[in-house]
Design a binder for these strands. Sequence first.
DNA 1: TGGAATCATCCTACTAGTAGGTAGATTGAT
DNA 2: ATCAATCTACCTACTAGTAGGATGATTCCA
Lengths: 196, 196
Amino acid sequence: MTTQQKLIDSARHLIQTRGYNGFSYADVAEEVQVRKASIHHHFPAKSDLARAVVEQSHAVILEQTRTLSGAFEPEEQLHMYTGYWERCIADASAPFCVAGMLASELPTLPADLADAVRMHFRDLSNWLEIVLTKGAQMGRFELQGSARQEAEAFMAMVYGAMLAARAYGDPKVFADIVASGLKRLVPSDARKSQQA
Amino acid sequence: MTTQQKLIDSARHLIQTRGYNGFSYADVAEEVQVRKASIHHHFPAKSDLARAVVEQSHAVILEQTRTLSGAFEPEEQLHMYTGYWERCIADASAPFCVAGMLASELPTLPADLADAVRMHFRDLSNWLEIVLTKGAQMGRFELQGSARQEAEAFMAMVYGAMLAARAYGDPKVFADIVASGLKRLVPSDARKSQQA
DNA sequence: TGGAATCATCCTACTAGTAGGTAGATTGAT
DNA sequence: ATCAATCTACCTACTAGTAGGATGATTCCA
């Protein structure tokens, strides 16, 4: 793996656990075992490094949602999305979404980095809206508001669940909250026939 | 107002907008128009100041929920709780809950401050659990899991909605998400009779 | 094929500025 | 006379970022 990628990986982990204002080039330098000046060679400013982290995460998610959308049913897609985070949080490999962490710090971020964060949220909620719309058309989901509203609400619950899991120091909290959120989308008659 | 209270108010505002790692004694000193050393006289360490902020907010919320619980119906109580934040976010006076902000930074916080944050979440979810239980007994709410689970999910959605509103830079996002969350708690037959 | 120039990478050494925090003097009310 | 509140002046540690040199691989060209 290239030094550049090691730097991004280290920065990602540090942002997830400590936030943008909570880590320094010195932290990255120690994790990757290079000098601070070497980081500046690859990423002149701290915001460049953080932006690279966000844009790479963004690209991965975009690719994965594209792959998922052709091959799986709407409810499976949602379940795979939440399941991904469930595993990340449970094994502590990624205890928080990078964009979620940065969103809480948004007012303090350099403009270019803030833009990258906003794009993540825009694309994620767009994808959720599409999945929910499709699921509703197929009769798999029962929406109570517009697909747009339900998508925002679902996304909010996922990020709120991450926050709660962190506050309680318990990954199970995330799983429980998200499970109840998924359950609410399933039509009540389908739920009853499953229970029977 | 005492200098001490001015310091707490300033710190609260700074934590809400910039987070614990995003503000310094120099920021507070400028807002309150005193020297840094004067802040250290009242709050020897930064974590002491932040803890005072959290504990004061905690006390206010505890008192308000106690007042509410005797005088209002469960659905009114929830509406007043979310309405409080709706107004805070809309007029930008308090664009984020202090404890929510600090929870995202939890791994970087001094132990005593982290404990204070955890207590806020514990008490808030306990209150929500009581309100939801009462509402369910009165037939005003239709819970799909245990009251405990529903309380955690509701809380997660409120905090996720704050995050989303910040990401989009639009207070209306918070209002929309929370409205859909409240709607979901109302039994479907009550909803139908309202629509009719 | 044998340099010679180029370039990316990484380094040591440094800067100016800011962080949280301390020592000790001054003020003013009780 | 005491004591809380505030101040000036300072400290050490750390921040992001820079200047410029060493290394080593690639490319250009005679």
